[in-house]
Design a protein around this nucleic acid. Structure first.
Lengths: 121, 121
DNA sequence: TCAGCATATCAGCATATGATGATATGATAT
DNA sequence: ATATCATATCATCATATGCTGATATGCTGA
């Protein structure tokens, strides 16, 4: 039972993680990890619709993950902080080690999906 | 336009982050950061329904964020890896610095929600 | 064996989310 | 001025998600 201000912080953290929690947005973030890009460059890089990219960029900006800079009719987006890339790297390192089981499990249709993450007594 | 295997990795990463992307689950994870807990202890700690906690734990386990250990009729859950806590810490550090603006902005009903994350030319 | 506790699962619902196509905004160049 | 390009926004829809209450499973101790 968290206090009200703890709950606020938790909600904010959830919003932050949810920013990362969509394949299209991760795809955009991956592209921005290399270099800042305009919306149309992102459309090309990700194969998503322009409107879709724009919506996701709005979301990413709301979450504080990217920032934008307008020059003329172009808007260039970039990661807002080094920790955005750090979070991505940490999650990749984690996945590479721990969640390898999830990869392999899905091939077998999850028939014993307990075995990987459950500790036997 | 990511390749098929890149897309798989992206989907997996999205699933991982989505595990973090819900207030109830963050609440559970926060409790587990301190010490491993049984389901009923988590119910008490979080003020969520038993069925709700159980569902979220299932999700967290699917995402590889927690692991479980059954002893008798109790099931104890714990974080599956140090990097789970690291991801939480990193996100907190990030929020503390960068997203302070989001906190303050919401009080004013977002009427100029551009100012915080946009770079002026 | 059976009653009772801890946990998991299910069906149903309300809401959130993401995709799409159409349209609006806003800047530039001719 | 206006046509055009880059981006943002809107309405709509389908699906995903999270919550609840009820029920099922599964262990334990009397």
């Amino acid at each position: 039972m968290p206090t009200a201000s703890e709950q606020l912080e938790i909600d904010l953290k959830a919003k932050l993680f949810r920013g990362f929690g969509d394949p299209s947005r991760l795809c955009i973030l991956d592209a921005l990890r290399v270099t800042p890009l305009t919306v149309s460059q992102l459309v090309e890089a990700t194969d998503l619709t322009q409107s879709n990219v724009s919506n996701h960029l709005g979301c990413l900006k709301d979450c504080g993950l990217v920032m934008s800079q307008q020059s003329g009719r172009y808007v260039t987006y970039r990661l807002s902080d080094d920790r955005v890339a750090e979070l991505l790297e940490l999650s990749e390192s984690f996945l590479a080690d721990i969640a390898r089981g999830i990869y392999e499990c899905t091939r077998y249709d999850m028939q014993d999906d307990e075995s990987e993450t459950t500790l036997k007594d």
